[in-house]
Write a protein that binds this DNA or RNA. Structure first.
Lengths: 141, 141
DNA sequence: GGCGGATGCTCAGCCTGCTGAGCGATCCTG
DNA sequence: CAGGATCGCTCAGCAGGCTGAGCATCCGCC
């Protein structure tokens, strides 16, 4: 129990994710973006999308996504305006500044995953986990 | 970019961790414990340890561990008392209630990782990530 | 046309990570 | 033995997950 070798796999997964995320966040902050902000900006593609839509795509709750977007808006990276066609919706779009940031962040290269013996296998296994654990909470995302 | 297949591996890792953690947390809350609390209780072994020591073993910052322990103490799962030998330290130990909870949590079976094609490979790869990403931040832990 | 359910969002609040600042206790060194 | 560095901890505050409650809008059906 003293060393990671003895940890259950779930704990290993959380820890690995946290450590990698931390390393990545350090680089990101040089361009003034957070992990969550980058994902939102990325998912925004080139058109406007609703918050619920973005949340589902990112596999987070609406409230979480809304707060991230609110922060991005405060910093001038996205705009949020009510949809004329459906007054319940808020349409989010990147500002030019947001697009520039995204570009820069992407130029920072793939996400700082430390070198691992079989990256492709890791991807495959993680995809299995995500797909099988998304069920129910994020239907048809 | 729309579906997990197109995500960078780092994002996949975070998402997988979050989804698995969520599932596990749901079970844990039936015994009145959180993810972080379980880890602390687990690392506590059978003897008293200092907060710094626990934090390093869990790969989290001292402040994070201290807060988790403070919560566990409030719920009567651990005790915290200053070390007589070194008045800077706080020695943490499980209470009988804490030990009972840990037992129950462990009876809940391994950590809810969804079935995956090659669990052993996943473990190995995650271990590689943890070991290589722990460097610096958690020396000799 | 109107009522009820579904949908999209906000507000409030909790837990877990993190950083930075500050403080007493200990230890080492001159 | 005194002073400075280090160590262990607390306090304050931020970001990112989550839940639950509540509100407005829209849609579908009678």
């Amino acid at each position: 129990m003293e060393t990671p070798q003895d940890w259950p796999t779930g704990r290993l997964l959380s820890t690995a994710a946290r450590l990698v995320e931390h390393a990545w966040a350090e680089r990101l902050e040089t361009v003034g973006l957070t992990h969550a902000g980058l994902i939102a900006l990325h998912l925004l593609g080139d058109g406007a999308r609703s918050q619920t839509d973005l949340a589902r795509a990112a596999r987070v709750q609406l409230q979480t996504m809304a707060r991230t977007l609110e922060r991005l808006e405060r910093h001038g990276h996205v705009t949020r305006e009510r949809d004329d066609a459906d007054a319940r919706r808020v349409l989010v779009s990147r500002t030019p500044a947001g697009a520039a940031l995204l570009d820069e962040a992407q130029r920072l290269e793939s996400e700082a995953l430390p070198p691992v013996s079989d990256p492709a296998a890791l991807r495959t296994l993680l995809l299995e986990v995500v797909r099988s654990a998304s069920g129910g909470r994020f239907p048809a995302a």
